[in-house]
Design a protein around this nucleic acid. Structure first.
Lengths: 226, 226
DNA sequence: CTTATGAACGGTACTCAGTACCGCACGGTG
DNA sequence: CACCGTGCGGTACTGAGTACCGTTCATAAG
């Protein structure tokens, strides 16, 4: 018990020293020394000085990949929401650690950049999954997959950052709500009927006119665009 | 004319050497030597080895900021589209240089990460502008601004990458079209009527049913939610 | 008990990016 | 001529990251 696996001690030492002296003014030697290990050992456990404060993104990415893989065509969007919730929960489980990391990434641009790069990998995963799910290889579908993936991770990050700043009491409910909003932006081709796309399409709008006053124009639109 | 401003020679040398030996296997000394200048001079012109291949993001950010600043409330979305087009045109003006950079960022993860970090700065700029424009300080509006900014830069990057890969003959037309699609995703609060929010609200959906078959339910919904 | 094996660690030495500082040459201006 | 700002080169340093080697120690095999 006096040896909590050097890896942990290194991370602890790093956080303490980064808090005390700041990130740039802390050397890897400092961290290793405080953890009571050699410098070599540090690089055995963490690829770089930056990596020591970040969660295991590779493992998280695998988690997402797994969740997405276990979905049929009709549950694809549920899988996306689930995967997003999974990531959020991972951060929440970290608790204080996640908040200390947030404080660091807010101050040190090198760390912020690295975090952003990681987020891009999640976005790529979602983009590829969504594009696959759409099946449609056209340019329009490709763009829509890109937009959707961007919106999905933006929603997650928005809620996550709110929670990190202590602005959210129930981040899970918030992320679910945010995901609903994201998915609502994109027309879902979940036509349960049978053959698709020969029904009625309504566009969304808000108006101060009465529904009855609009009906004639609506009917005309529908008739003119078969 | 034998001295095309060391800065240019350094960039040229860097691209040539990166092509020849790859990025990691090229040292700053190599670049400086090939450019016929001292190592110190390299760092006088470029903050880092990575910076030598990237365009002047600070200047581009200023360009965007300026374009966005010269917009009224009613032309905000036009300003966003213009700003996006501005960035795209900047890359197109670079021509072959932009494509060589793309080849590098596709292979070297360190460069890709840096590019992604730059993109995030553009996204932040758009997010702040859009949030300002919305005026609404609620959480819902904040999320919508985030989503919109993410979609805007995703659309730009999508078209840009297509052009970089030689898949687009008319990227400007494509980005305009993509921006229209993005803005169409978000209900525009351009209610030209007068006082707002005591009329009829329609939700967006696509169905295979006839409009007439839906009307009774619609009316019931409207009556039940005044 | 002895030996082989493999994993985890520490130490040394190296490359290279990035910074700090100093001194030199040049061109214009008084 | 003297003065001064600018651009450049050289030297020396810090610190991240890599390569390599030797040591320790626990466990399994003999």
């Amino acid at each position: 018990m006096s040896k909590p696996a050097a890896r942990i001690r290194l991370a602890d030492a790093a956080f303490v020293l980064f808090d005390e002296r700041g990130y740039e003014r802390t050397t890897v030697d400092d961290i290793a020394e405080r953890a009571g290990v050699g410098r070599t050992t540090f690089f055995r456990h963490y690829r770089s000085k930056e990596a020591v404060i970040f969660p295991d993104h590779d493992r998280l990415l695998e988690l997402i990949r797994d969740r997405l893989a276990t979905s049929s065509e009709s549950t694809a969007l549920v899988a996306v929401s689930d995967a997003v919730r999974l990531v959020l929960l991972h951060y929440i489980d970290e608790g204080d650690l996640a908040r200390r990391r947030y404080a660091l990434t807010s101050k040190v641009s090198a760390l912020r950049d690295r975090e952003i790069a990681s987020v891009a990998r999640y976005q790529r995963l979602f983009r590829e999954f969504i594009a696959d799910w759409m099946g449609d290889p056209t340019e329009a579908a490709s763009l829509r997959a890109e937009l959707m993936a961007a919106a999905v991770v933006a929603a997650h990050n928005h809620v996550l950052r709110r929670w990190l700043r202590g602005e959210s009491a129930d981040p899970v409910a918030e992320v679910d709500e945010a995901m609903r909003e994201v998915l609502a932006l994109f027309p879902t081709p979940q036509s349960p009927g049978g053959r698709d796309d020969d029904g009625t399409t309504l566009v969304a709008f808000r108006t101060s006119q009465d529904l009855d006053a609009l009906l004639p124009s609506l009917r005309r639109l529908i008739e003119d665009n078969p």
